[in-house]
Design a protein around this nucleic acid. Structure first.
Lengths: 116, 116
DNA sequence: GAAAACGGATACGGTTCCGAAACGTTCAAC
DNA sequence: GTTGAACGTTTCGGAACCGTATCCGTTTTC
């Protein structure tokens, strides 16, 4: 990864990005929801409820509820696994991909504008 | 213009930090709460409810409630302004300062690709 | 001194979330 | 077939949070 920054820069970056996010009027995501969303979009599929719960170190209902909420926002979608109908596969959506992409771009822009 | 990263690095950094935060067992902060906390710790005081609400572009009850929650976590404290007793001044706490400091250190470590 | 303006907290009805436990469905083993 | 495990969801009581509106104490204005 090898990105170099000082703690004060990291904190300022986080603050400005959070402020940006709040003011954008987007629904207020929690750390948990952000972790789930980014894992779905950055880690290779397939993503099951159980695997996500293990990755975050939380219980399955936490994932189910977070997906309910983010599904209502059209950020993710759920589909039954045809090969094993017990599984639910969590997939990306166009809207979610756009959101994640813009989010990354905003962080980069903020980082570039940080004072030395 | 001091911190350089690509969008994929920014997103990965955010994911790993969020995962770290979730797994730490700390209470699950929202973007709003994080924005408030970091603003109190990074911007120069004094911090009033009204000013924080304006900075985040949200209503006053949002700030009041977030401070209730974070006050219960001992991350911030409230004090009446002796000069104008209508004002409430939001101040840092030792515990909050420690939390913010460690948070910044963790981001830096993740960015460098090093274990903490 | 009375009235208006200000700053923050509170009340309200509603949604989301929590952890723990129980539930239905689906698959695998025997 | 029947049993047992696996997967995700739902339930429960309780807590936190939402936006809007209102309330209370304080300060300012006239």
């Amino acid at each position: 990864m090898s990105v170099h920054m000082r703690p004060s820069q990291a904190l300022r970056l986080w603050q400005e990005t959070a402020l940006d996010e709040v003011r954008s009027g987007h629904p207020d995501l929690s750390f948990r929801q952000a972790a789930i969303l980014l894992t779905i979009y950055l880690d290779p599929p397939p993503h099951t409820i159980r695997a996500l719960a293990a990755r975050l170190g939380v219980t399955k209902p936490v994932i189910t509820r977070a997906l309910d909420t983010m599904g209502a926002m059209n950020l993710v979608s759920r589909h039954r696994d045809p090969d094993d109908r017990r599984n639910v596969l969590v997939r990306r959506t166009v809207e979610g991909a756009l959101y994640v992409e813009r989010f990354g771009d905003r962080i980069v822009a903020k980082a570039a504008g940080l004072p030395l």
